Computed example of a mutant assay.
Amino acid sequence: MSAPFPVTDATFEEEVLKSDLPVLVDFWATWCGPCRMVAPVLDQIAAEYEGRLRIAKVDLDESPETARAYGIMGAPTLNLYKDGEVVTQIVGAKPKRAILQVIDPHL
């Protein structure tokens, strides 16, 4: 079963930008309540979309350079990367249906 995996400033390019599959990146923080709310939803999506989508997690406190490079202003922010480019962004905790409505057209 596929699950969200951690990505850091050092591994972001290899794991996300060079990925053969689209990657939904969860920019989150341990102190963020809404991030904890969306985490189980992302676990479900990772399992259901295995082979079509990867889900990565970037801790804003541990990897500030990547967050700064992509203009991340708040948590949670979900960026969908396809072929190394951001194709859509979701800011704030959203229900599963709302997340899928945004990402499905890009898969």
Rank of each mutant, 00 (worst) to 15 (best):
S2M: 13
S2G: 04
S2D: 13
A3C: 11
A3E: 13
P4E: 05
F5L: 02
F5N: 02
F5D: 06
T8Q: 05
A10C: 09
A10D: 12
F12Q: 04
E13L: 03
E15P: 07
K18S: 15
S19L: 02
S19A: 08
D20A: 15
D20V: 11
V23H: 00
V23Y: 07
V23L: 03
L24H: 11
F27L: 10
F27Y: 13
W28Y: 10
A29K: 04
A29W: 08
A29R: 09
W31R: 08
G33M: 14
M37D: 11
M37T: 12
M37W: 13
A39L: 00
A39I: 09
Q44C: 07
Q44T: 15
Q44R: 15
I45F: 09
A47Y: 11
E48S: 13
Y49G: 04
E50V: 02
G51E: 07
R52M: 13
R52Q: 15
L53P: 02
R54N: 04
A56E: 01
A56Q: 02
V58Q: 03
V58H: 00
D59L: 04
D59P: 07
D61A: 12
E62N: 10
S63L: 03
S63M: 05
P64H: 01
E65W: 02
A69I: 00
I72C: 00
I72W: 03
M73I: 11
M73P: 13
A75F: 06
T77A: 02
L78T: 02
Y81F: 15
K82E: 03
K82M: 10
D83L: 09
G84E: 03
V87K: 00
Q89E: 12
I90A: 01
V91K: 10
V91L: 03
G92A: 05
G92R: 10
A93K: 06
A93T: 08
A93Y: 05
K96M: 01
K96N: 08
R97I: 13
A98K: 14
A98M: 14
V102Y: 10
V102W: 07
D104C: 12
L107D: 13
